[in-house]
């Protein structure tokens, strides 16, 4: 079964159609990259998956998005976002909260545990999954704002993971990170996709090639090409994809 499927998805901001009839199937337990030039609709598409787009008053959506076969529009939006975690381009931990509380917040809020001991276990599990535990285990009460940029991003990943999502959306998660932090996040993606589906938006073809199993290329709101990463990068079927990948577009 596909983790996410879009059916003739169209999205407008006011009168501007930014996503133009996209049909996409994202298999389970893979890393799926969405790439394309700035303004092509990558982030908008990602925000349609977890209905985050609804928070934008001028956005209008047509078509459907299915999560493991169920329309996300027939589900409670909070439940959709619990099952589909999200990590953004700029790390956004709650700076005034401790490292521990940043991870624990969503779990507490959604009453997913019944005891402090259970919560401790989930926090430790999530921080370990995010490859951050060893760096913060002795300073869990420190403020999140004291972490480095790369650590903050992994904390945000831990926060998302603590909710036990089935899908993790990552919107240019390494855009503001140095190569070492980027590598840690990419290694993390490799490990995490064994247990959940990851959809990553990137405008770095090199990153898409490194981390993804499948890749989709978007241009001006349209899906130009989708396929296995190695096929698309070695022998793209569409001229536009070739031009984008080889930096000869425009």
């Amino acid at each position: 079964m596909n983790a996410i499927e879009t059916i003739n998805l169209r999205i407008w901001y006011g009168n501007n159609e930014v996503i133009r009839g996209i049909n996409l199937a994202i298999p389970e337990n893979v890393c799926f990259a969405i790439m394309g030039p700035s303004g092509c609709g990558k982030s908008t598409l990602l925000r349609a998956f977890n209905r985050l787009l609804e928070l934008n008053e001028i956005a209008r959506v047509e078509g459907d998005v299915k999560l493991f076969g169920r329309s996300v529009y027939g589900m409670d939006s909070v439940e959709v976002r619990r099952q589909i975690g999200m990590v953004f381009q700029i790390p956004n931990p709650f700076p005034h909260l401790s490292i521990y509380d940043n991870v624990a917040l969503g779990v507490r809020y959604n009453r997913l545990v019944e005891s402090k001991r259970e919560l401790d276990k989930i926090v430790e599990w999530a921080l370990k999954k995010a490859a951050l535990w060893d760096e913060v285990k002795d300073r869990l009460k420190d403020r999140a704002s004291e972490l480095s940029g790369g650590q903050m991003q992994r904390l945000c990943i831990a926060r998302a993971l603590a909710m036990r999502p089935k899908v993790l959306l990552m919107d240019e998660p390494t855009a503001n990170l140095d190569p070492i932090s980027t590598r840690k996040i990419e290694e993390l993606i490799y490990e995490l996709k064994k247990e959940l589906t990851i959809v990553i938006v990137t405008h770095s073809p090199a990153q898409a090639a490194r981390v993804s199993d499948y890749v989709a290329f978007l241009y001006l709101g349209k899906l130009v090409e989708v396929g296995k990463t190695e096929d698309v990068f070695e022998n793209p079927k569409e001229k536009l994809t070739e031009e984008y990948l080889t930096g000869r577009m425009g």
Binding site: A206, F233, E234, N235, L245, T246
Partner: peptide, 9 residues
Amino acid sequence: YQPVARDLR
């Protein structure tokens, strides 16, 4: 340049 597609081939 980390070439891809035709450049890589």
